[in-house]
Design a protein around this nucleic acid. Structure first.
Lengths: 227, 227
DNA sequence: CGCTAGCTTGAGCGCTATCAACGCCTGTGG
DNA sequence: CCACAGGCGTTGATAGCGCTCAAGCTAGCG
């Protein structure tokens, strides 16, 4: 079955290999792997975008910095996510490993070469870009118009869809990362989480505070988008 | 000369006609025109995205609403801008005419049909989507991390690039529209503009306050991005 | 075992929102 | 031609949400 980009439910290509190999093209895309230690940079803003990446294991943050150090994280990339796909020749974010991370990577140029002749690959590229755009559009609404509690609730629901295993969310990122993703300070994020805990909406597991159980998704959703 | 999407300076296709006609395809894309009165809706969020639009004259705002009325404007579309290009089947924003507006429109399906066989058109679609993505990414930084003065300064500089004629910016949108674009209230926008006026950075022309002269672009830029 | 990084919590402050009053311009109808 | 209403913008007073500064706690690690 072929992906139809004309529907909202079009699945995004879920691996770099898929991107290249569903193609009828005979061109082979070379895949390699690379590992980054916690905190190290995968690429920097304005650097030439020579590679496209997929998280094999670990987690990555993409962010922009202002000259005085204010940081806005645009996205978190978790296992399976593809990132670093730019259309121009330069990266528009800095990407950093949040924890020890292994990525697969392909040369961007080889991808473009295939896309040139292969409609399926080209459509997948457009589809991925559109998914990124949609995420950014939703995030603008959050950043521009939501309260701190709504932002944190929305964050938990988003992560729930992506990292929950056996009912427990294991967050790789720190409070500061969450804060810079949500346009808040780490203290405000911490207070919101405490409040959700008091309300019985979430629970913590273990002594690190990064394992969270969603006890009441319905109430969480109503906090995200109030009646 | 063909557009190369591999460069940052790739010009965006600047008309719907271009999108269809630079193509080697023999398929004809039917162009029609339609006019909207000030304040009327071009399309609503979640409506099927059957057409793609280009502003012939006037101005359009694209926004999302929360259930309690909070509004986030994602973009302003001015003369020449193409909007309503969704990759899914539904619009993700509501689009409204800010002033009396005339648009050109094409059926989305016909565009997709051409893109199917025509690499140039397909690349232009990707290029336009990427431009929208880049704008959204920059706007996330603004909404998440900039002060009110920085936001207004950034807004003026952005509009300056797009609507300035003979040194005067004629803004079609109200203070409330600007506020909902910048994630502020209209009072805060008004105060920021007054402050910029006091500082001698901008001037007003006429008795409507929508004609603005940038007296000191350099200072404005330094207010947008402080050292 | 002490040190550091990360998280929580408290106290106080400041920026932006809220509420309100007012002015100006425009359109409308007497 | 004038009176009036409504839309839009500005400005002031006050409030409140989230930020800043600070202290203290815990876990992990050398």
């Amino acid at each position: 079955m072929f992906v139809r980009i004309t529907t909202d439910s079009a699945p995004r290509p879920n691996s770099l290999r898929d991107l290249g190999m569903t193609s009828s093209s005979t061109t082979l895309i070379s895949l390699s792997e690379f590992s980054y230690k916690k905190g190290s940079e995968v690429y920097g803003e304005k650097e030439p975008a020579d590679y496209v990446y997929q998280v094999k294991s670990g987690a990555v943050r993409s962010y922009k910095l202002l000259s005085d150090g204010r940081r806005q994280i645009g996205a978190f990339h978790l296992t399976g996510d593809i990132f670093g796909l730019e259309n121009g020749s330069e990266h528009r974010f800095t990407a950093e490993a949040i924890v020890d991370t292994t990525v697969r990577l392909v040369k961007r140029q080889s991808l473009e070469l295939v896309a040139e002749s292969d409609t399926v690959v080209a459509r997948n590229l457009l589809s991925m870009t559109t998914n990124n755009l949609q995420h950014a559009e939703d995030h603008m609404l959050l950043l521009g118009r939501k309260t701190s509690l709504e932002r944190v609730a929305a964050f938990l629901l988003e992560m729930d869809k992506r990292v929950t295993a056996a009912g427990v969310m294991a967050l790789p990122m720190s409070r500061r990362d969450i804060a810079d993703y949500l346009g808040l300070t780490l203290e405000t994020v911490s207070r919101a989480l405490s409040r959700l805990h008091e309300l019985g909406v979430i629970g913590f597991i273990g002594n690190t505070q990064r394992q969270i159980v969603l006890l009441d998704r319905h109430q969480l959703a109503s906090l995200d988008l109030p009646a």
